[in-house]
Write a protein that binds this DNA or RNA. Sequence first.
DNA 1: GGCACCTGCTAAAGTCTCTTGGCATGTGCG
DNA 2: CGCACATGCCAAGAGACTTTAGCAGGTGCC
Lengths: 118, 118
Amino acid sequence: MTDSSPSGDELVRILAALASPHRIRVVAALVGGRNYVSQLARELGISRALLQVHLRKLEAVGLVSSDLELSEDGKALKFYEVVPFGFQLTPQLIADAAVTLTGLDAQDVTPRRESSHG
Amino acid sequence: MTDSSPSGDELVRILAALASPHRIRVVAALVGGRNYVSQLARELGISRALLQVHLRKLEAVGLVSSDLELSEDGKALKFYEVVPFGFQLTPQLIADAAVTLTGLDAQDVTPRRESSHG
DNA sequence: GGCACCTGCTAAAGTCTCTTGGCATGTGCG
DNA sequence: CGCACATGCCAAGAGACTTTAGCAGGTGCC
């Protein structure tokens, strides 16, 4: 298990990457074995352009990895495969990741006595 | 562990619910203890309306639960709390969930020989 | 009644995501 | 060269999600 507790931002990104039927299917298809884009698109019944977008998102968060290879015919085939990952989703783990969230940081958890909300 | 292998659709919904900095913070805040909407909104530094929307999404997928109570003053307070959940994210589990995905079902995984895409 | 506090709803604008379709490049082959 | 197959990228429309702002109802208290 390479991953256990990703940073808040990363966790959100990973979750977002997985929160898609298409991408779930892509990962599932790759679990069955590595494959190259065009072939995978045919098997999944979606367009190459669409599959590429989804593959990029999955690769961007490290859930899959690509490997450009040359077939015996000399054709360039871009193989994708699943990166063995293992994340656990529990309230505590999420709370832990939350503190490392960047962006808006409003969870002061500091009871403001002088609440002058305007 | 109440949950182990949610259906594909449910998994996607849960992942989508968690794939948001705001909602991650909401869950995190609730891990620290139950709280009611207005108070939680103040602590998180976001508007009540916004918080309500996020709380609904979390509740819709069963990650948090609400409980309308009356304070000693007679005010109606809607308390939210985290529902103890535990999901594991691994390629295999995802592949398993993928087969139960409804909607577009194009993962025929059947090598079509007569591919005449026009 | 007026103030402070709670809840709930909805309309509207802005933003991000998804998906399609087209176009360009490169290779092997007859 | 023209065909079949692979990769890559971009613009544009449709659709979903996010966030704000405003309004309405209810309770306790002075």
